[in-house]
């Protein structure tokens, strides 16, 4: 495949079948050439995007739409709250297009993310660990008010975030796998699930859209007031069929299984997504239903290598290593 510029290489990622993990689903027996029974798992490898995560899609789309309608002009400063991947994607695009990039990022994210942002020339403003991404959003909104000339693309509320997935990720999945029955992705800004979910619901009657939401340890939730929670402006519950909360242990186990069973080296949030995908897979196998379950590999494991989770002797040791970190 040939592209004229690096930015044009965003998207068109591989969709790969996972015969071993599919065959290991209880009750999913038989052979259809795919090496598994009626329930098949498929991974959409979004780590193959230029900066290594699914966020290249919304980042580039949000920038190009802002350029098209005049919100973003040469010499502008882009501001964004991010736990890493969106910031990294925006920073790469900003560097190539000549914008200054400022990221607000929780201080309890991995060193690799910070280094990657600096590498692409972004300035990083740390936000307190307590409150995680909620606090980063609040700090970014305060900075936006102080600097009215800065452009906050604001992935949590920008329809072009979901729009990127409606226009590209959704159609790619349907073209590669017209028999898709389930789509499973992580729930953060909700952009992936809203965009792909809306597209597939229009094209595939009865499709099931499943959200996997990270559940952190107490340090991350801290003493948050229940009246001051955060629900992204993009979120529309009617697009989802269901929503699972996945804790660190299950996310780490999923990440390690994906590596051991299928050789896919993914980030920790992907382990959480796989955990939810296996849950719906077991349900389908138990009910004797056919299922083609597509889940998102949101990024590769490179940014999480320093946590030691891939080589820890046990899942328990790996979970211990992740304590207090924002892993998604």
């Amino acid at each position: 495949m040939k592209y004229d510029t690096p930015l044009e290489a965003v998207g068109n990622t591989p969709l790969v079948g996972l015969p071993r993990l599919s065959a290991a689903i209880p009750g999913n027996l038989g052979s259809d050439g795919h090496g598994a029974g009626a329930v098949r798992l498929w991974a959409k490898l979004e780590d193959r995007n230029p900066t290594g995560s699914i966020k290249d899609r919304p980042a580039l789309h949000m920038i190009e739409r802002a350029e098209a309608d005049g919100r973003l002009t040469p010499g502008c400063t882009i501001l964004e709250p991010t736990s890493g991947n969106t910031g990294i994607s925006l920073a790469m695009a900003a560097k190539l297009k000549g914008y200054r990039m400022v990221c607000v990022m929780p201080e309890n994210t991995s060193e690799e993310r910070r280094e990657l942002l600096r590498m692409w020339g972004a300035e990083v403003i740390p936000s307190p660990a307590a409150g995680g991404s909620n606090t980063a959003v609040r700090v970014a909104k305060e900075l936006a008010a102080e600097h009215p000339d800065w452009v906050m693309l604001y992935q949590y509320g920008n329809p072009d975030n979901a729009g990127a997935h409606y226009a590209t990720t959704g159609p790619e999945i349907l073209a590669d796998l017209p028999t898709v029955t389930h789509f499973v992705a992580g729930l953060g800004t909700t952009g992936t699930l809203m965009g792909v979910g809306r597209y597939l619901r229009e094209k595939v009657p009865g499709v099931t859209i499943v959200a996997a939401e990270p559940r952190y340890d107490d340090l991350v939730y801290g003493l948050r007031n229940l009246d001051e929670g955060f629900v992204p402006e993009l979120y529309d519950a009617s697009v989802l069929s269901t929503r699972f909360s996945v804790g660190s242990a299950d996310a780490v186990r999923g990440t390690r299984d994906l590596l051991q069973q299928e050789g896919i080296f993914a980030g920790v949030s992907t382990g959480a997504i796989l955990h939810a995908a296996l849950g719906v897979g077991r349900k389908a196998a138990k009910a004797g239903e056919r299922a083609d379950i597509v889940f998102v590999v949101a990024d590769g494991g490179w940014k999480y290598l320093s946590t030691g989770i891939y080589t820890a002797a046990t899942t328990e040791d790996a979970v211990e290593a992740l304590q207090g970190q924002l892993w998604a």
Binding site: S53, I54, K55, T82, S83, G84, N85, T86, G131, G132, S133, N134, A136, V137, Q155, Y156, G186, L187, G188, T189, T190, E213, P214, R215, Y216, V220, Y221, R224, N225, L226, G229, F230, V231, P232, S245, G267, S269, A298, D299, A328
Partner: peptide, 12 residues
């Protein structure tokens, strides 16, 4: 049953 405050999560 798990009770949690709503937070912004995911790989953002």
């Amino acid at each position: 049953v798990t009770i949690l405050p709503a937070v912004a999560g995911g790989s953002v």
